[in-house]
Amino acid sequence: MCSHQPMCPSADSADRDAARTVASHPEQGWSLLCNGVVLFDDTGEQLPDGRVVEPRRPVLLRA
């Protein structure tokens, strides 16, 4: 899918969300990346094969 040089990370790569944005819909809270990943504003992702990656939120430590 990617024609950039160097190529964007694949949807199976750990750094998949570093791919270039090809469509952005901030009013709906998501963007489509060059590798086919849908990236949501809450950091969740939907992969091209339909798998879902849960949002990565920071863990708050209480003293």
Score class of each variant (00 low, 15 high):
residue 56 R to G: 08
residue 18 A to F: 12
residue 19 A to I: 02
residue 63 A to K: 15
residue 44 G to W: 12
residue 36 G to W: 03
residue 46 Q to C: 08
residue 5 Q to T: 09
residue 28 Q to L: 04
residue 16 R to G: 08
residue 15 D to R: 04
residue 19 A to M: 00
residue 37 V to M: 05
residue 25 H to T: 10
residue 7 M to E: 01
residue 7 M to W: 06
residue 17 D to H: 07
residue 42 D to E: 14
residue 62 R to F: 13
residue 38 V to H: 01
residue 32 L to E: 09
residue 56 R to Q: 15
residue 19 A to W: 04
residue 29 G to R: 11
residue 49 D to E: 11
residue 42 D to K: 13
residue 51 R to G: 03
residue 51 R to Y: 01
residue 19 A to H: 01
residue 43 T to K: 15
residue 59 V to W: 08
residue 46 Q to R: 10
residue 53 V to L: 14
residue 41 D to N: 14
residue 57 R to I: 11
residue 12 D to A: 07
residue 11 A to C: 10
residue 23 A to K: 05
residue 55 P to M: 13
residue 5 Q to S: 11
residue 10 S to N: 00
residue 33 L to I: 04
residue 2 C to T: 02
residue 2 C to E: 03
residue 31 S to P: 00
residue 61 L to W: 10
residue 50 G to C: 03
residue 53 V to M: 01
residue 40 F to D: 07
residue 2 C to Q: 01
residue 13 S to F: 04
residue 43 T to V: 13
residue 47 L to W: 02
residue 41 D to H: 13
residue 1 M to W: 06
residue 1 M to I: 13
residue 45 E to Q: 15
residue 49 D to G: 11
residue 58 P to H: 06
residue 11 A to P: 08
residue 52 V to A: 01
residue 56 R to Y: 15
residue 57 R to A: 05
residue 63 A to N: 15
residue 2 C to D: 04
residue 48 P to M: 05
residue 15 D to K: 06
residue 41 D to I: 10
residue 44 G to H: 11
residue 19 A to F: 00
residue 42 D to P: 13
residue 61 L to R: 15
residue 57 R to F: 09
residue 59 V to I: 06
residue 25 H to Q: 12
residue 55 P to G: 11
residue 24 S to Y: 06
residue 21 T to C: 02
residue 63 A to H: 15
residue 51 R to K: 09
residue 49 D to Y: 03
residue 29 G to P: 03
residue 35 N to T: 00
residue 46 Q to S: 05
residue 45 E to K: 14
residue 3 S to Y: 02
residue 7 M to N: 03
